[in-house]
């Protein structure tokens, strides 16, 4: 572009040093001065003012024992508390209803809203208070004798009213006379080692597991004399006494020879706390919560 005629006027201005530059030159490259718009500067000042106002109005500066509270008294914790209160008020009707209707009437068909509330609320209560022993999936812990609540075998009955009663009063509670109370004799010292070995094989037999046929047939008499009073002659158990069915595939403490022998010798005493605040001073749950948990547990696949 040495030909002056073809030099662009803007380029000519540059050659003449006319455009506003910062005066900085590197290897002939000049730095234009492109000043920032002034409103941008005011925006910056605006954000600074905003920040000061914000820290005065809202919790902001961390001190030794917490942050400055701010003039507006804003608190996320209080927001949560008021939200919870608001939802509880919205659910107040459902909570009243759930304590008044018949438990068996809370089904997806007959009262879908109540059923949904019971399932959701029951699941939350279960996770908080029941999952420690029964597991978050309600599958129990066999090694510790916490029953699986998903299967179709129930020690004290699996109708929704049975489940409700068990949750309310617990198992084996001295301070609640209504509580289920099962008591198995520890046969250590009552039965001889041979008798115990034979009755173990008999129980293996009636539950359809591998067993020593000779010992098992000897064990039948031992069973009928000592065990059938609670577990019944055919070994199917008695829910009134909380005596488990010994003929099915489900074992509270395990169905191996070792586990059965341990049970016969030492007995087992599983306990469950009473949850009803009405039934026991130790109870921690309201009637609505207990009913919700009952509906929830009943819906997990084993309900009768």
């Amino acid at each position: 572009m040495s030909d002056h005629k073809n030099t662009h006027p803007e380029e000519q201005k540059l050659l003449d040093g006319d455009p506003d530059t910062t005066g900085h030159v590197w290897d002939g490259i000049k730095e234009f001065n492109n000043p920032l718009p002034r409103w941008w500067l005011w925006t910056l000042y605006g954000t600074i003012v905003w920040a000061v106002v914000y820290t005065v109005l809202y919790p902001a500066w961390p001190l030794v024992n917490g942050a400055t509270p701010g003039l507006l008294g804003f608190s996320t914790r209080e927001n949560v508390a008021s939200d919870i209160l608001r939802f509880e008020e919205m659910n107040a009707d459902l909570r009243t209803q759930i304590t008044e209707v018949e438990l068996a009437a809370i089904t997806p068909d007959r009262s879908p809203d109540l059923y949904n509330y019971a399932i959701q609320g029951g699941a939350a209560t279960f996770a908080t208070w029941c999952s420690q022993c029964h597991g978050s999936g309600a599958a129990g812990v066999q090694a510790s004798g916490y029953p699986n609540l998903l299967d179709d075998d129930w020690l004290w009955g699996g109708t929704i009213d049975d489940i409700h009663f068990t949750i309310s009063h617990g198992i084996r509670n001295e301070d609640d006379l209504d509580a289920h109370y099962s008591e198995m004799t520890a046969f250590e010292g009552i039965l001889s080692d041979e008798e115990i070995a034979s009755v173990v094989q008999y129980v293996r037999n009636i539950s359809g597991q591998e067993h020593d046929a000779e010992l098992a047939s000897a064990g039948e008499t031992v069973f009928l004399d000592n065990c059938a009073a609670c577990h019944l002659d055919d070994g199917t158990g008695d829910r009134f006494l909380g005596a488990p069915n010994l003929t099915d595939a489900i074992w509270l403490y395990g169905g191996s020879e070792e586990a059965i022998e341990y049970t016969v010798r030492n007995s087992r005493f599983g306990i469950m706390p009473p949850w009803s605040a009405d039934a026991s001073p130790a109870g921690r749950l309201s009637e609505a919560e207990i009913r919700s948990v009952a509906v929830y547990v009943h819906s997990l696949g084993g309900g009768e």
Partner: peptide
Amino acid sequence: NPQYVVLSD
């Protein structure tokens, strides 16, 4: 949770 459940039969 659990993967499967054993039923009484």
